[in-house]
Design a protein around this nucleic acid. Structure first.
Lengths: 157, 157
DNA sequence: CCAATCAGGACCGACCCGGTCCAGTTAACG
DNA sequence: CGTTAACTGGACCGGGTCGGTCCTGATTGG
């Protein structure tokens, strides 16, 4: 059913949380405010750093900070960073070397237009859009949406 | 990585094959011409019948036939029939009853615009489009594309 | 020098998926 | 009317992937 990995959802939550301040934030800190278990937050942040979405500062007083504003991060980038390149991959079997070499994998050709369409769709939506959608209509205020929506994955025990 | 189930790819192959004639075709027959194992073809066809994409004729001389022309079958319908409703579902855990009851699942709200965009993208592409894309450019002829492309999943040894 | 923090792995259990198979039902044909 | 060919609708199982945790380094500020 076009499963989206749960890690990707966590990534969105974490990124939105990171946007709250310019200062670097530690993964334990983010874990505390979001309710996501700390090791998982760390894993997500490491992956996002590898994907070039956040910058890391090592050592004491280190942490992570956002590299782009939310409006400049299409959700396609987040998915690509966490789940790998966006493609309805059916070439799952180990023969992906062969699949690469002979450029006319019939499956790939067949789904190419579909992949393109999905990629375009996912590129047109930014995290800023998702941030708004995450706030239930009742709570949406004309003013600046604050951190209230960030701690909504788990009731924080 | 937005995995597409392999069954869905089989479904496209089978549907394109079914479009070759008006007459009903048996699943053993389709299995033979496509190279897909017979039990799998049967499973795919059963699912497609349940999804209303093909009609079945039981008994001897029975088989399946297409209900709509390829150009009238958006790939979204195929995916929905095989993989269930199109949604980047993160609500995987057993608590989906609770997820239904309280209408403000934050995850769901957050990904709603994304789901909509993907659904629209998948609805705009029909099997006829994929049929063309499946034929390598070199082999594409102005005339009517025949059954040549149907037997391309496995070399059928 | 010590503590805090990120880096980059390995590791494990649970769940889902692909693929197969079997008993039952339906319908054509001789 | 029996036989045969085909769909129906489940159950079933093994493998692979994923979520989640943990551990050992490397780095930096105090």
């Amino acid at each position: 059913m076009l499963r989206l990995s749960k890690l990707t959802d966590y990534a969105v939550v974490v990124l939105v949380r990171l946007a709250d301040t310019e200062r670097v934030q530690t993964s334990p800190g983010i874990a505390a405010t979001t309710g996501i278990p700390e090791p998982t937050v760390a894993k997500v942040l490491k992956t996002l750093a590898a994907g070039g979405l956040v910058a890391s500062q090592r050592g004491a007083r280190g942490g992570y900070r956002l590299l782009r504003p939310l409006g400049a991060i299409p959700v396609a980038d987040v998915i690509a960073a966490i789940d790998g390149p966006i493609a309805l991959a059916a070439c799952v079997d180990g023969s992906l070397t062969e699949c690469e070499s002979q450029g006319l994998c019939p499956v790939r050709g067949r789904w190419d237009p579909v992949n393109d369409a999905i990629y375009r769709a996912l590129s047109s939506i930014t995290l800023a859009d998702m941030q708004e959608a995450a706030i239930p209509r009742a709570f949406r205020v004309p003013g600046r949406p604050a951190a209230a929506h960030a701690a909504n994955v788990l009731p924080a025990e």
